[in-house]
Design a binder for these strands. Structure first.
Length: 649
DNA sequence: CAAAGTTTAG
C-alpha cells in the first residue's frame, strides 16, 4: 500500500518505518529511513524514535551517533522519549558510557529512562549497579511498573541475588502483580538461577496462565540444577499445552545429555527433524554435546560437520567430546582447525582442550596450551584450568611437582584439585604425600567421607593396618556420605537404577550369582593375592564386597544378563569408577566377549577384550596399554562427561 | 507514526 501511494506524507513514512522495525525487519526500516531522508520529506520526533531501535538491532552505532548529533541540534536533548531511545541504542550497541552520560544529564526522567538504564547495566554485566539504580528510582518517588520490575528481576537472576529477588517477590504479591506472565516468568528465572527449584515450582504451579517462556524457564531450570528427570517430565507435560520451540529444545537437551540416555536423545533429535522450525545454532550445538555425552561420538561429529556457521560453542563441545572419549589428538586437531577458521578461544574453550590433554596423557601439549592461553591470549587461569593441570601432572605420576604446583597457585585450590592428587597418590602408593594432601581435603570438606575412604583404601593396599583402623573410626564418626554411588542402564527404553550396597533390584539374586561366578573365575586366573593388580581379597577390611557392592557392577551384570549375546553394554555412573571395579570390568569384557562402556563422572571407559580405552588412568596399566586405542572411533557408539555432568539426584 | 521487560547451547 505504501509503495502504491502517490502522496506520501510524514506519517506515511513514519508508519512504514515503525511497522518494519517492530516486526523483525530492522534493515528494511533503516533503508526506508535513508530513502525518506533523500526524498526531501522532513523528519520529526517519531521518525527518529522509530528508527533508533533498528540501529541497535543491527549494531549500526555510527548511524545511531549520527542521529544523536542531529537530535542535539534540533531538539537539544530536551525530548525525553528521544533521549530514552538514544540511551537504549547506546547500551544495546555496547557503549554503556554514552548511555550513562545521557541518563545523568537528563533534567526530567520518566520511568522508561530508568528502566532503559537498569536493563542497560544488566545487559553489560553491571548487575549490582542495575539493582542499585532500581532503589534510587524508588527513592525518587517513582513507583515501578511491570517493565521496571521484570528488568530488575532479570538483574537479580543474572547476579544470583536470592534475597533481593525474594523482596521483589513480596512486592509483587503485595501489589497484586502475580497475574502478569512476564513478572511470573522473571520470578521463576530468579529462583531457578539461585538454585531453588522448589520456589520456582511454587510460582509456576500457582500461575493461572503459562506461556511458552514459563515452560522453557522451568525446563531449563531443572536441566541446569541437576534435575534432568524433572526436566524431561515437564517437557512431556508441556506438550499437552503448547508446542515446543527452539528454546525448549535447547533447554531440554542438556538434561538428556546428563542422563546419558541415547534413546531419549535420538527421540528428541527425530522430533527436531520432523518439525522444520525446531533447529538453530543453539539447538545444533546442544545436539552435538548431547550425542558426545551419550557416547555416540560419530553422531556428534556428523551433526557438527553439518553446522554451516560453527561458532566458539560448536568447537568447544566437539573438543570436549573428543576429550571425554580419550581422543586427545583429535581434540588438538579440532582446536587447530578452529583457530584456522579465525575463531578465538575463550577460557571455557581452554578448559576443554586442557581436559582433553590430561585425559589422553598428552603432558607436553597440555603445558603448551596452558602457556598459550596465559601469554598469547592473556586469559587468567581459573580454578578449573589449574585443576586440569594438576590432573595432568598427577596422571603422569609427577606427584611432587603437582603438589608444588598447587601450593604455588595464585588462587585458593578447591577440594576437586586436591582430590585428583589424592587419587594419584593412591595409584602410585605414595602414603606420605597422600596424608599431606588428605589434610587439605578434610579441612575443606570434613563431611565428605569419600576422601576418608580413598585414604583408607590406600592404607589397606600398603597394609598399614593401624592407620587404617584409625581412619575407619573417623569415617564412622563423620557419618554421612555426600554423594551416594549410583549407576543406571537403559534397556529397551527403560532406565534401571542401582544404588551402591543395596540389593533391592528384583533380579538381584541372579546378579549376585553372576558376580560370584566372575569372582570365582578371576580367582582361578590368579587375580587375587598377587601384586600384579590392585585388586586383593579384602573382605577383611571392606564392609561391602567390591564385586557386588558397587553399583556399576550390578548395572553391568544386569545388562549382560538381560541383553542378547555379544551386544554392547552401556552403563552410566554418578561418581568416578574405583580402581578395583575397573579391573573387574576389564576381566568381564573378556570373559563374556562384550564391549562394555562405562560413563563415570569424569569420562568414558570403553572395555573390550580385557582392556580399557582410558589407557590406564588407573596406573597399573599405564605403560602397558599406551597407544592401544589410537583408533577408538571404530567402536562406534560408546558412552561421556565432563566434571560432575553425570551426577544424579 | 514514537521509548523500557521475561526463556536457549560449552
Amino acid at each position: 500500500m505504501f509503495d502504491g501511494m502517490l502522496d506520501k506524507d510524514l506519517v506515511s513514512w513514519n508508519s512504514i518505518i515503525s511497522g518494519c522495525v517492530s516486526n523483525g525487519l530492522p534493515l528494511n526500516g533503516v533503508e526506508l529511513f535513508a530513502e525518506m531522508c533523500s526524498s526531501g520529506v522532513n523528519l520529526d520526533l517519531a521518525t527518529l524514535v522509530s528508527v533508533l531501535p533498528a540501529c541497535s538491532e543491527m549494531s549500526f552505532i555510527k548511524m545511531g551517533q549520527t542521529i544523536h548529533g542531529y537530535s542535539v541540534k534540533v531538539y537539544g536533548n530536551k525530548e525525553i522519549t528521544l533521549v530514552n531511545a538514544l540511551i537504549d541504542m547506546y547500551s544495546k550497541c555496547g557503549n554503556l558510557g554514552s548511555a550513562k552520560i545521557l541518563f545523568e544529564r537528563m533534567e526530567d526522567r520518566s520511568i522508561v529512562s530508568w528502566t532503559s538504564m537498569i536493563s542497560g547495566y544488566t545487559r553489560n554485566g553491571w548487575f549490582e549497579e542495575a539493582m542499585g539504580l532500581f532503589e534510587m528510582m524508588e527513592l525518587e518517588g517513582i513507583s515501578p511498573d511491570l517493565y521496571a520490575i521484570t528488568s530488575v528481576l532479570h538483574a537479580c537472576a543474572c547476579n544470583g541475588s536470592f534475597d533481593q529477588g525474594k523482596r521483589m517477590h513480596d512486592f509483587v504479591a503485595r501489589n497484586g502483580l502475580e497475574s502478569n506472565i512476564s513478572v511470573v516468568n522473571s520470578l521463576m528465572h530468579v529462583y531457578a538461577k539461585c538454585g531453588d527449584m522448589e520456589a520456582a515450582r511454587m510460582v509456576f504451579d500457582c500461575a493461572n496462565k503459562k506461556d511458552i517462556i514459563s515452560w522453557n524457564t522451568m525446563i531449563g531450570g531443572f536441566s541446569k540444577n541437576c534435575l534432568p528427570n524433572e526436566a524431561l517430565e515437564l517437557f512431556i507435560k508441556m506438550q499437552c499445552h503448547s508446542r515446543p520451540n527452539r528454546v525448549t529444545m535447547a533447554c531440554v537437551l542438556p538434561a538428556v545429555a546428563s542422563l546419558s540416555s541415547l534413546d531419549k536423545g535420538r527421540e528428541m533429535h527425530a522430533q527436531i527433524l520432523r518439525a522444520e522450525d525446531l533447529s538453530d545454532l543453539h539447538v545444533s550445538n546442544a545436539l552435538v554435546d548431547m550425542y558426545a555425552k551419550c557416547g555416540a561420538l560419530s553422531f556428534a561429529r556428523k551433526i557438527f560437520d553439518r553446522i554451516i556457521d560453527k561458532d566458539l560453542i560448536s568447537w568447544t563441545v566437539m573438543i570436549a567430546g573428543y576429550g571425554m572419549h580419550g581422543h586427545g589428538r583429535e581434540a588438538i586437531n579440532a582446536f587447530k582447525e578452529m583457530r584456522c577458521q579465525g575463531i578465538e578461544p575463550d577460557g571455557a574453550c581452554f578448559i576443554s582442550i586442557l581436559y582433553s590433554c590430561s585425559h589422553s596423557g598428552l603432558i607436553d601439549e597440555g603445558w603448551r596450551f596452558f602457556n598459550i592461553m596465559k601469554h598469547e591470549y592473556k586469559i587468567e587461569p581459573t580454578v578449573q584450568h589449574y585443576a586440569c593441570m594438576v590432573d595432568l601432572l598427577s596422571r603422569a605420576g609427577r606427584l611432587t611437582k603437582a603438589y608444588n604446583f598447587i601450593t604455588s597457585m595464585p588462587i585458593k585450590p578447591d577440594s576437586a584439585i586436591w582430590e585428583s592428587l589424592l587419587r594419584a597418590c593412591r595409584i602410585h602408593r605414595d602414603v606420605k604425600l597422600a596424608e599431606r594432601v588428605a589434610e587439605h581435603v578434610f579441612e575443606l570438606e570434613p563431611e565428605n567421607t569419600s576422601y576418608y575412604v580413598l585414604l583408607a583404601n590406600l592404607y589397606a593396599e600398603v597394609e598399614k593396618w593401624e592407620a587404617l583402623k584409625k581412619i575407619r573410626e573417623k569415617i564412622s564418626r563423620h557419618g554421612k556420605q555426600k554423594h551416594r554411588g549410583c549407576s543406571w542402564i537403559e534397556l529397551r527404553n527403560k532406565v534401571h537404577v542401582f544404588a551402591s550396597g543395596s540389593k533391592l533390584h528384583p533380579r538381584s539374586e541372579k546378579i549376585g550369582s553372576f558376580l560370584e561366578d566372575v569372582r570365582k573365575r578371576m580367582k582361578e586366573e590368579g587375580y587375587f593375592g598377587q601384586n600384579k593388580f590392585i585388586l586383593k581379597d579384602r573382605n577383611d577390611y571392606l564392609k561391602e564386597d567390591v564385586l557386588c557392592g558397587h553399583s556399576e557392577m550390578q548395572a553391568i551384570a544386569f545388562g549382560i544378563l538381560n541383553s542378547s549375546k555379544g551386544k554392547p553394554v552401556r552403563v552410566t555412573k554418578n561418581l568416578t569408577v574405583c580402581g578395583d571395579c575397573h579391573e573387574v570390568i576389564k576381566f568381564m569384557s573378556k570373559m563374556v566377549s562384550r564391549e562394555i562402556t562405562l560413563r563415570d563422572s569424569e569420562r568414558f571407559h570403553q572395555f573390550r577384550e580385557g582392556r580399557c580405552s582410558c589407557r590406564g588412568s588407573w596406573g597399573a596399566e599405564l605403560k602397558k596399554n599406551q597407544g592401544l586405542y589410537q583408533d577408538a572411533d571404530s567402536f562406534g557408539i560408546s558412552l561421556g562427561t565432563q566434571g560432575n555432568m553425570a551426577r544424579r539426584k
